[in-house]
């Protein structure tokens, strides 16, 4: 099958529920898309759009009590394909980090404050049954930390609070590479960092992607980062995938009103601030979703049909797809 070679992971009609006491909250609704092997795929959306929930479902680390309610998640690794939604817990534990690792949003708090970096690296190796001699282990750690340009000896002996924010994020990146994963999830890896460090981290990540061929799934709300860094992009809104395609197509043609709105709401250094147009209204309340298209209340192109029935996902032929009745109609060449 062709998909096996092209894709590292495929989500097919995935819905994720949070069963709460009085009601069930559907954080992710019917999402189908694939992560291309060796590429960097970005998921953009406002906070609460379900991007973290969706990505966490790859390693079954959705915050409690979230569960994958419907759909299939398939991972096409070197050792064959795995149905991630059906994987029993012990196997899932072995799968985590060895196949899919993660760089967290707040590196500050993603490391255990009472263990040194060395202890945390070592215990992760041990949890995955890696039997290395002490020398081999140290060599591996130095290699990885050297790769992210850190002084291995000092960093390994340090506790998390002794490292700066940028250093911690680099430690986390080295950590993510520890077991040679095939996919790394990047959950807003630079939000807490200053701009210069941000650039440095992204250059580093891009280098890892190109040199080691590791696929990446990046979650962010920063459109400019996506434009610079990612190969493919999925735009999420209210737990739904509104648009998906390669970055150039999606951003230049702005075929979906929400994508267009997101880009319009991004300040640019060169442009005038008056050109910046925020999307009016507020993100949807997942408990009281509007009938029809969930973006309709805020959509400038909203028409009668949008208010009654949810638009289907339409393929656009060039590999991109979108959820809008007018998908493609906005493509009047003005996006260049």
């Amino acid at each position: 099958m062709q998909t096996n070679r092209d894709n590292i992971a495929v989500f097919s009609h995935v819905s994720i529920d949070y069963p709460l006491k009085k009601y069930t909250l559907r954080a992710v609704t019917d999402i189908t898309f694939e992560l291309k092997r060796g590429a960097i795929t970005a998921l953009v959306g406002e906070s609460g759009s379900g991007k973290t929930t969706l990505a966490s479902s790859l390693i079954r680390c959705i915050s409690e009590p979230g569960r994958v309610a419907e759909g299939e998640i398939t991972f096409y690794g070197k050792d064959g394909e795995e149905r991630l939604d059906l994987l029993p817990d012990p196997k899932m534990r072995a799968f985590r980090w060895s196949k899919v690792s993660m760089v967290f949003q707040a590196a500050q708090s993603a490391l255990n404050p009472v263990l040194t970096v060395r202890e945390q690296f070592t215990e992760t190796l041990e949890a995955h049954g890696e039997k290395l001699s002490k020398e081999e282990r140290e060599a591996k750690f130095s290699d990885l930390l050297g790769y992210v340009k850190l002084d291995a000896e000092r960093v390994l002996a340090s506790y998390p609070h002794e490292l700066s924010g940028g250093m911690k994020q680099r430690v986390m990146i080295a950590f993510a590479l520890l077991l040679d994963p095939e996919l790394i999830i990047l959950d807003e890896p630079t939000t807490a960092l200053d701009v210069i460090t941000q650039n440095y981290i992204f250059t580093l990540l891009k280098q890892i992607n190109r040199e080691k061929g590791i696929s990446m799934l990046l979650m962010t709300h920063d459109i400019s980062v996506v434009a610079k860094f990612a190969d493919y992009v999925g735009v999420m809104y209210g737990g739904r995938l509104m648009e998906y395609g390669d970055v150039r197509t999606v951003f230049h043609r702005r075929r979906h009103p929400y994508t267009a709105g997101l880009i319009g709401a991004t300040p640019s250094i060169i442009g005038d601030i008056s050109e910046m147009k925020p999307i009016e209204g507020s993100p949807p309340d997942l408990l009281h979703l509007p009938k029809g298209c969930i973006f309709a209340p805020r959509c400038p192109r909203c028409s009668d049909v949008c208010l009654t029935e949810e638009p289907p996902m339409r393929e656009y032929g060039d590999g991109s797809k979108g959820k809008c009745y007018f998908f493609g109609e906005a493509d009047d060449g003005k996006g260049n």
């Binding site: 390693i59 680390c61 915050s63 534990r93 072995a94 799968f95 985590r96 980090w97 060895s98 690792s101 993660m102 967290f104 993603a110 490391l111 255990n112 215990e123 992760t124 949890a127 995955h128 950590f175």
Partner: peptide, 8 residues
């Protein structure tokens, strides 16, 4: 969460 993601 991070520890769980690491497969501990």
């Amino acid at each position: 969460l991070a520890a769980r993601a690491r497969g501990l």
